[in-house]
């Protein structure tokens, strides 16, 4: 029996990477590049440790030789992250999670709302590079908050913009834009990342059109690898079973689009959960 002792993996410890560049994508979105190589599947995430501050999950907005994470500045942690400079050290654990599955799709629709684009940008680039017909709906509150438009068009994907205030592209939500697009063409698969109510809307539209859908979920995450249970949603662990879930899976989650757990584990409404932090 002793010979069967399992190997003791040691992957749950941050490794320091040197920051190579920091760029502003918009007034509120920044990208931090660090020294690669660092490989991960589109949709997989890392836990990013800022020594003395906290550790939070981020999907990589670039992988390979020049990997990066992109974030919107909106709380204490991201304000500290925004102060990171070239040559600083950041701690990275991972990659974790399942990632998106392009499998045999010949045509895809990728819907991104707000900073959700950071989680699907490498998926867009990979899909387009594989000559998969790639339609992208990119939404934001206003024109100045749209990011990665150049990367999307450079990849060869077709980009459809949409803003809540009509300052660019379709005047309205990404869900409406998706509804309009789906009347003209039917992709093999839909992918989405953005505010949960947007993803709920996309999941409903995909179900109505009988198109498979994959959604990247967000819950308060602490460990990132399935031990602490903080990111649980109806018995699923977002860090380990996800963060990408299928339409069939989210259909079994009563809390999807409704409620989420705080750091303490207390369940509250999504509206309360995503209300601006003081």
């Amino acid at each position: 029996m002793a010979s069967n002792y399992p190997s003791l993996k040691n992957e749950a410890i941050p490794i320091s990477y040197e920051v190579t560049n920091v760029i502003s994508e918009s007034a509120t979105v920044k990208t931090i590049f660090f020294k690669g190589p660092f490989n991960a599947l589109p949709g997989q995430f890392v836990m990013l440790w800022l020594p003395g501050v906290d550790q939070k999950p981020f999907t990589l907005s670039a992988t390979g030789a020049n990997p990066a994470i992109s974030f919107r500045i909106h709380g204490e942690y991201t304000r500290a992250l925004a102060k990171v400079k070239t040559c600083d050290k950041i701690g990275i654990t991972g990659p974790f999670g399942n990632g998106f599955d392009l499998s045999s799709a010949k045509s895809v629709l990728i819907v991104a709302g707000g900073i959700g684009i950071a989680s699907v940008i490498t998926l867009i680039e990979q899909a387009a590079a594989k000559k998969i017909r790639t339609e992208v709906i990119l939404g934001a509150r206003t024109k100045n908050e749209l990011v990665f438009e150049k990367r999307i068009t450079a990849s060869g994907a077709s980009l459809h913009l949409c803003t809540d205030d009509g300052t660019a592209g379709h005047h309205g939500f990404t869900t409406e834009a998706a509804g309009i697009l789906l009347q003209k063409q039917k992709p093999d698969c839909i992918f989405a990342c953005g505010p949960e109510l947007m993803m709920k809307g996309i999941a409903d539209i995909a179900a109505a059109h009988k198109i498979p859908v994959q959604l990247s979920l967000e819950r308060y995450m602490k460990c990132g690898f399935g031990m602490c249970g903080a990111c649980e949603i109806n018995g699923f662990l977002v860090c380990k079973d996800g963060p990408v879930f299928t339409g069939e899976q989210v259909a079994t989650m009563p809390d999807f689009g409704k409620s989420a757990r705080l750091k303490s584990g207390k369940k509250i409404s999504l509206k309360e959960y995503f209300s601006p932090k003081k």
């Binding site: 003791l8 993996k9 040691n10 992957e11 749950a12 410890i13 941050p14 836990m47 440790w49 501050v53 906290d54 550790q55 939070k56 654990t93 602490k222 460990c223 031990m227 602490c228 705080l262 750091k263 303490s264 207390k266």
Partner: peptide, 16 residues
Amino acid sequence: PRSGHRAPIIVSFESG
């Protein structure tokens, strides 16, 4: 209710 300590909250090393 308690929010707990800041992350990282669990880390690995070579033997535990």
